[in-house]
Amino acid sequence: MLQIMVDIDSDVPLFTQLTDQIKSAIASDTLLPGAKLPSIRQLANDLDLNNKTVAKAYRLLERDAVIQSKGYRGTFVHPDAKQNCGQDINDWISAEVQKLVGVLREGGATDSEIRIAFTNAMNK
């Protein structure tokens, strides 16, 4: 049985510890597509964590199509999980932002103007 271990004293956020371990278990075929995962409540209570922490980890994994929720039947490993867990959305975000910043600088925008524009965009 796959076991998840979290260190509550670690600097790595708890939800990241969870998502990383689930992704690496899928990548190493320890968790196979279609496998049923524990409910949010069960995992949170077993790890003595807040339900919201586990829910956040599951939500991020679902967004990345690594797991899928099937209502009352529970949460399962996504059929394409192995391909999808290799993609890191943070890397993609960094690359896209770098591209955009490059374009704006070429257009003559200063760094402070870019920062203000980003802040305004994020606050909308």
Partner: peptide, 14 residues
């Protein structure tokens, strides 16, 4: 600070 849990569902039907 270490906590471990199994990733197996414990629903009644399981």
């Amino acid at each position: 600070p270490i906590r471990v849990a199994g990733m197996q569902s414990r629903g009644i039907k399981d």
